[in-house]
Design a binder for these strands. Structure first.
Lengths: 191, 191, 191, 191
DNA sequence: AATGAATGAGGTTTCATTCAT
DNA sequence: AATGAATGAAACCTCATTCAT
């Protein structure tokens, strides 16, 4: 194994340790010392990979699946089934309520983390808006609202469901909760 | 002014100072020292009123307007207009994005704060479910979904909009953003 | 003993501990932990009195005897004897070479410390320039150089002697070294 | 280019990088990591050339021009013009106030650096004392003071001027400041 | 009830140095 | 001879909390 591989391994090691701890306790409660102990490395090593805890949360960032969203608009026929399918995948990435709570804590914990989060949302908005526009062109979605607005409300809906679920409410499975919630949402934007 | 009044005054004084600071910086960044300095009291005095910062955020809690919700189901005719009116009132309580962000940080910052928040949500769920059941009885809302579920989704929607807005997105006015979002929501639950 | 007195005592306690340590090791080598241990207080207490080590060195600052300098120009007759007397007092304040070395390290250790030092020099320059002007008026000092320039060279001479001595050279007694050095200086500025 | 040349080149490379950084920030603030980055070498390589930062400051040492001083006493006629000429050359080596400040910080930063500095001063004292003795023999300098003492005061004067200037005071050009200061000094030691 | 100096555990971060490659 | 990832001691500093006044 060469140096590069080893570095990647150590980095992932740190990330895994952090995720574990976030899932066990919370973002705030997790200290860098705990992370390095769990990862089995020296405290100083952490700072070779991340400038601080904020920096780390950015890397743990929920995969927003922007690529998958982009691909949807190329699909023939109805778009909603494809979106629904994507939503059902969500719980693959959202292990536990505790972890999601920690992520929610993390992304609003500091101006920097928020900025990072907004950038990711921006990208998603762009990709998703195109999908909705395509849906409007095809007559699948209502055109009574601008695509951008529908898109933002969709993201709000996603965030709200995630937050609510992470606080311990809703179906025990986040995917299920998401699907139910979005069924209602789809109904409201269908032409 | 008697002793009781004076105590209530000091307590409110502390709360106001905290709200100001949360709105200026953030929940985490605000220290008890800052709060007491702003309130013009000694550090030790803080602990005569609150056990700690968590305790304090519970008192700042957004007014969930449970009372107002309860009253809605007594109204004759369509219920949605009354709900819509309530929603429009929201920005009266939600001063700035910064403050809302701080509240969002606060309510998920600790198990205790979450527990407190869940209790408040529970009460709201009870009140709102009755309203929706009433709406279903009157044929205003769809009966294809249980009232409790619709209710939870409504709260998710509220939380999501608030979180999204507090992060700096959506209409500059939270009330407007809420109204637009809920128009879509109403559409999805109308019979 | 009231609170104010106690505070003053603790502060002086910290300063004494710091001076001792500076004299034993050096400015850089002395840590805040050492200072608080020596002073017999908690680490946190240090920060109730000083923002950091730089802040502390400003308080240890050599007494520049600005007041005494101001008074000189009121004296009748020759001024040099009064200046010489002041210089002889210097070693009262400059205990050991080690301590002076630490002070020299401290005053140039950071931009802030330098700024503080420059302010003190400024004041001394003002006071001393007036003395020299008075000496020029009385015909005691040469008028071939502006008083301000003579004054600056005097301070340079003081600093140089102090630095040289603190490095371990010159007479074992700083006062003696100063007096000898300034005899030569006086000779050069006499009318 | 053979191996020896390459080594010398790398060493100089490191020194140059250090000088640049000292001039930009300060001695203390400059880290070995910064030096190696600036020099374009690996951190580990630094330790192949210097044991540590102290070691390095010794090599940056101001050139005390001992050789030039030695040559002065061979000159016929008055010696002062030759000394004055040497002093005027000083600012050729003393680029910026910042750099001089860093040097001043460096030479008193550790016992080892001080020892090294004292050795250099010793050599200079030897050389300069001989010059002054020669001047005394020729009747150019006063004999009322031992040559060694005059010599030490001269060095004090040099150090004081350098320190004062590096702190941001005196003429913008160090050479000018030195010349003015030493004119006064010469006056005091002329027969 | 109010004060605020003292506390000290515990956090983040730095950085010279080592050593396997 | 050069590399740079890993180290870990040790620095600084914060801040909720206590408690004598």
């Amino acid at each position: 194994m060469n140096r590069e591989d080893k570095k990647r391994l150590t980095r992932q090691n740190v990330l895994n340790a952090a995720i574990e701890l976030f899932a066990e306790q919370s973002y705030e409660a997790t200290t860098i010392t705990q992370i390095t102990e769990r990862a089995g490395i020296a405290k100083g090593t952490f700072f070779n990979y991340f400038a601080n805890k904020e920096d780390l949360i950015c890397d743990i960032q929920v995969i927003w699946a922007v690529e998958e969203v982009r691909r949807i608009k190329e699909q023939p026929g109805l778009l909603i089934p494809h979106i629904r399918y994507l939503i059902m995948q969500i719980d693959k990435f959202h292990a536990s309520r505790q972890l999601m709570l920690a992520v929610n804590q993390g992304i609003i914990s500091s101006p920097k983390a928020i900025r990072n989060q907004l950038e990711q949302i921006d990208e998603l908005v762009k990709a998703l808006t195109e999908v909705i526009e395509e849906g409007q062109r095809r007559g699948e979605f209502t055109s009574s609202l601008p695509a951008a607005m529908i898109c933002e409300i969709a993201i709000q809906t996603y965030l709200g469901t995630r937050l609510y679920w992470s606080m311990g409410r809703g179906d025990s499975n986040l995917g299920t909760q998401m699907v139910v919630t979005f069924e209602l949402f789809f109904k409201s934007i269908m032409a």
